[in-house]
Amino acid sequence: MGDVMALIEIENLSVTFNANGRRVRAVEAVSLKVGEKASFGLVGESGSGKSTILRAICGLAPVSAGRIRIGGEAVQSPRGKAFSAQVQMVFQDPYASLHPRHTVDRTLSEPLAIHGIGDRDARVMTALTDVGLPTSFRFRYPHQLSGGQRQRVAIARALMLKPQILLLDEPTSALDASVQAEVLNLLMRLREERGLTFLMVSHDLAVIDHMCDRVLVMQNGRAVEELSRTALASAQMQTDYARSLFAASADRMLEG
């Protein structure tokens, strides 16, 4: 993967939070590159900074050093409309990420309204169909949907502006195994159909292996090791931490 090709480029990114006057370094000097139409995974324990990287890309975390480039251009602060038309995020918890008092229709139309895009009716209907929801769900509220259906709505919302990049923060960890399978299949299909680029956070190595070509192992805010999918599946990791993570996931191997 050449430098020119990278759609997402993160260079020496540090994120520092201020907690009661104490500086907490959530991410320290992490660099990564994701090529166009690639799928890149971030794994590590909670607090390792993997979600913070996604939030930093969206401008939701205080970046203290480093550069973020999308398509070769440094991101603007605040991010602005051009950014949201290109990059969208799907959050972990579909119960918390959808507005409880907005109908599905309103949730899906809002990005269109903000960006002054017309033909909303048809777009909302198409978006529902694309994520495998019946169009009759259009005027439902989130509490009238199951967890899997809500996550489909969240994915549909992220795709309303036809972005190139989806940032996926544990998109299936709140879901049942069978629903997880459906949502992962949906993401794979959408990625194929639309040529999307994924940057995905998960603590489940099997999910990362299923979805991603490359994976970055993180610990305590630092990048520990970057692995290709082949290296992951054949346990060719160089660092002790990546190996221990893999060993703890041994029951997720094919033979399992």
């Binding site: 195994a177 069978s178 997880q180 399978a181 459906e182 992962l184 299949n185 794979m188 299909r189 489940d204 190595l205 099997a206 999910v207 292996d209 299923h210 979805m211 992951l232 599946a233 054949s234 996931s249 997720r252 191997m253 094919l254 399992g256």
Partner: peptide, 29 residues
Amino acid sequence: LLHARHPYTQGLLNCLPRIGGTRGPLPGL
């Protein structure tokens, strides 16, 4: 458990992704 007989238990097991798996669509339940 991983050799469960009940079709529901088997279905739950089969829809899980696996490290080194095929990456084809996961079977539904």
